[in-house]
Computed example of a mutant assay.
Amino acid sequence: MARLFGTDGVRGVANKELTCQMAFQLGQAAVAFKGRTILIGKDTRLSGDMLESAVAAGIMSMGGTALLAGIIPTPAIALLTRELHCDGGIVISASHNPPEYNGIKIFDGQGFKLPDSVEDEIEAFMARGGAAADELPRGDEVGVAVPVEDACELYIQHAVQSVEKQGIDFKGLKVALDTGHGASCMTSAEALRRLGADVTVINDDYCGTDINVQCGSTHLEPLRALVAECGADVGIAHDGDADRVMLMDSEGNEIDGDMVEAVCAIDLKQRGLLAGDTAVSTVMANLGLTHALRDAGINLIQTKVGDRYVLEAMREGGYV
């Protein structure tokens, strides 16, 4: 049988490849392997409500508490799982994929993705059909679902304060923003405005079937047109769950991710904040990144493809 978990959780066409039964069992698994209090967030897909209900039911069937954060970016769930002292977090999203797809990814209590070994244990749990019926709690031992009213606000405050603490604001900066009819429509424009930016935003509404469609980080043409139209200094485009960002300069040129990492690493080194004078990327990084960092006195560690492997190397070496 093919492995259930891909590089970023379980994904497929909702209600066909990713079924409510699978979502229910993943909710059960979250409690079985992580603990009783699980935070759930989702993007704007139509199937998000259905899968959220199934995941929450699985959590409650194990006697757990499902904290419902609603529509919110993936990084916010990683943050709030830790800040709200949850045992784990779940994001219901298929990231940059078309609207008919959805996905489920699980975080541990520190907001980190699960290692392969734990995912393998969860797969075995699901292959057995989830928790045995005679082991489930009854009566007053079943779980509950509780809404988290201010989840997006907590994330916005964290993002703004993280920048302000470095003595930085965005006053005088004109920003063109494409939220891709996705989760960042709840947070990004507000955070940028609080930092002083003049923000013009497109695709910041949603109907559940327009997420990532000819917009956002995978389709930069609308952002390029917006940058030109409003004379922006920078363009920003997110994917559906806002764990991905594509940047554009004032001329409409895409700023590659390798370039972003080089700028961040060199800036941190100049400020004495680059741990071990080392940056971490994957083997997909352009050779130009290696040369640019080497010329700046920075070592580059390259990992297997997948952000979890980058993160593992960062945690092992204490890199930033």
Results as ranks from 00 to 15, higher is better:
94 A>I: 05
156 I>L: 00
86 C>N: 02
131 A>H: 03
114 L>H: 10
122 I>P: 01
143 G>R: 09
128 R>S: 12
84 L>N: 01
144 V>G: 03
162 S>F: 08
120 D>L: 07
64 G>V: 06
59 I>G: 00
126 M>D: 10
125 F>I: 07
112 F>G: 10
106 I>C: 10
67 L>E: 14
111 G>D: 02
144 V>D: 15
63 G>P: 09
74 T>Q: 11
95 S>F: 09
72 I>P: 00
105 K>L: 03
90 I>W: 07
75 P>I: 02
105 K>T: 06
65 T>L: 14
134 D>V: 05
106 I>R: 15
143 G>N: 08
77 I>D: 02
109 G>K: 13
159 A>N: 00
60 M>N: 02
133 A>Q: 09
67 L>T: 12
125 F>R: 08
57 A>G: 12
108 D>R: 08
55 V>T: 14
85 H>L: 15
147 P>H: 06
94 A>C: 12
152 C>W: 01
156 I>E: 00
102 N>M: 15
73 P>H: 01
126 M>R: 14
141 E>T: 11
148 V>D: 03
63 G>H: 12
96 H>T: 14
70 G>I: 06
124 A>C: 06
103 G>E: 11
88 G>T: 01
118 V>T: 09
90 I>V: 15
128 R>G: 13
89 G>Q: 11
119 E>D: 06
110 Q>W: 04
138 R>T: 15
153 E>L: 03
68 L>Y: 02
53 S>K: 13
72 I>D: 02
151 A>Q: 09
135 E>G: 13
110 Q>M: 05
141 E>L: 14
106 I>E: 11
160 V>C: 01
92 I>K: 05
144 V>E: 11
103 G>W: 06
116 D>S: 02
152 C>D: 03
107 F>Q: 05
103 G>M: 13
62 M>I: 10
137 P>G: 04
99 P>G: 10
57 A>D: 12
97 N>K: 08
102 N>W: 15
147 P>K: 11
121 E>H: 11
121 E>A: 15
107 F>M: 02
64 G>D: 06
82 R>D: 15
84 L>I: 04
73 P>R: 00
79 L>K: 05
130 G>D: 12
145 A>S: 14
64 G>E: 06
106 I>Q: 14
127 A>R: 06
104 I>R: 10
59 I>M: 00
105 K>S: 11
125 F>E: 06
92 I>W: 03
64 G>A: 02
131 A>D: 04
120 D>Q: 15
96 H>W: 11
